[in-house]
């Protein structure tokens, strides 16, 4: 109530909900929010839709996840990390686990992974694997990646060496 006794007309509630009491500020807030979402998506976290069975049972065949782009900003990818690997761009990427690091040799012997002739313990594997692959050297700027679903036939499962520059980030969830 004003000092002269008159009541200020209050804005319509729906209008307040939709555009706020001050449309100018609301517009600024929307612009900031859009810019923030754009920057987060471009430089921090990338939302992705997962599709495919090669990471079962760690990740479902269908689902949504996020890729942390900053994960390898100050450190290198580590063995066991699940990473997103880009193709020509980021519209479609591969989701794989790193098992071989630069300079190592990766081998599959009766389904068991050997890194530099030493067996690799992989607690995330739940089903038996019978893959065979001779020792494969991993280049200095390369990583050897493979999915967790090794019960698939080896021919049907995309895996192998990829360049460091193709790794977009670590899967967040």
């Amino acid at each position: 109530m004003n000092t002269d006794g008159k009541t200020n007309p209050s804005p319509h509630r729906l209008r307040v909900i939709l555009i706020g009491r001050n449309p100018g500020f609301t517009l600024v807030r929307i612009c900031l929010l859009v810019a923030l979402v754009f920057l987060l998506r471009a430089y921090v976290v990338l939302p992705v839709r997962m599709q495919g069975i090669s990471m079962l049972p760690t990740y479902p065949a269908w689902g949504v996840n996020f890729v942390n782009r900053l994960a390898y900003h100050r450190s290198d990818p580590q063995r066991g990390d699940v990473v997103a690997i880009r193709t020509a761009g980021e519209s479609v990427m591969y989701l794989k686990r790193i098992i071989g690091l630069p300079g190592e040799s990766v081998e599959f012997r009766h389904g068991q992974v050997f890194i530099n002739e030493q067996p690799l313990i992989e607690p995330y594997l739940k089903k038996p694997c019978h893959w065979e692959m001779p020792p494969t050297p991993v280049g200095p700027e390369e990583y050897f990646v493979v999915g967790d679903n090794r019960s698939m036939s080896q021919e049907d499962h995309t895996h192998g060496r990829t360049q460091r520059r193709r790794i977009v980030g670590r899967v967040l969830l």
Binding site: R49, A61, V92, E155
Partner: peptide, 17 residues
């Protein structure tokens, strides 16, 4: 994209919504 690759139709991520 993966040098030792074989065939598969799965395991893909589609960026964005």
């Amino acid at each position: 994209t993966l040098s030792e690759r074989s065939r598969e139709r799965g395991d893909r991520l589609t960026a964005g919504f």
